[in-house]
């Protein structure tokens, strides 16, 4: 079997891949930030001890963790036109869906991170007269997030891989870019192989960075 990678040059990148790579990266970033914010809220709801807050949050997280991301993407893409009358573009739909979905996973990480901060810290804060939210804001969350950074970054790498699933709604991400390029030049096999290589290089390098950071960021107890 002969492989011909000659079509892979800078022009190819500019014409087909750049748009896709940009979208994948943007989606990853938006979903990470949005997911962490929403995830933290969910985690705090679950830890609040009040049934009114913790029960819906728990249901939400468990639901999102039981169904495939593709289904969530499809649901949103399908339901939106019915509810608001017009259809949202694939890209915007992807942003919202990913934030909603990944928030469930980030909330688990945040929950574990908060739990890893010794009770003594909270007790000390309370003894000083700090309220619950002050305790969270100034004592618990800053320490918890520092501990969580490696795990959060690993989840981001997984998120980046998940962005390829927007294939289901035809959004133009990196993988789609490779596929279109491959079809255009009649070289689908080389295109898929290149896609695998590029994804690998990106994710592998990021995981190396995470490993380096892991040792620097841990709070010594």
């Amino acid at each position: 079997m002969e492989l011909d990678f000659s079509f892979y040059n800078w022009d190819l990148f500019k014409n087909f891949l750049q748009k896709g790579l940009l979208f994948s990266l943007q989606l990853t970033l938006v979903a990470t930030v949005g997911g962490i914010v929403l995830g933290t809220i969910l985690a705090l709801m679950r830890l609040s001890g009040q049934k009114l807050l913790s029960t819906p949050a728990t249901w939400y997280v468990n639901l999102m963790r039981s169904i495939p991301l593709v289904m969530v993407i499809l649901w949103f893409f399908l339901l939106m036109p019915s509810i608001i009358g017009k259809s949202i573009g694939a890209e915007l739909s992807a942003y919202i869906t990913f934030i909603a979905f990944e928030a469930a996973f980030f909330s688990e990480i945040v929950r574990a991170g908060i739990g890893s901060i010794a009770k003594g810290q909270t007790a000390a804060g309370q003894a000083l007269g700090l309220s619950y939210s002050q305790n969270m804001q100034y004592i618990v969350l800053p320490q918890a997030f520092r501990n969580m950074i490696p795990v959060l970054m690993t989840q981001t790498i997984i998120l980046f891989q998940d962005t390829s699933l927007v294939y289901a709604i035809g959004a133009y991400d990196l993988l789609k870019g490779f596929e279109v390029a491959g079809k255009n030049f009649g070289r689908p096999i080389e295109a898929y192989l290149l896609a695998a290589v590029v994804y690998f290089l990106i994710c592998f390098s990021l995981s190396r960075v995470v490993r380096k950071i892991q040792s620097k960021v841990a709070i010594i107890r």
Partner: peptide, 23 residues
């Protein structure tokens, strides 16, 4: 471990479906 962890599932499925049977 590094190889199969760092490539998205969908891409791996495409490889198995389109590429590997030819190889």
């Amino acid at each position: 471990v590094e190889l199969f962890r760092n490539i998205p599932v969908l891409v791996q499925v495409f490889l198995w479906y389109h590429v590997i049977p030819l190889m």
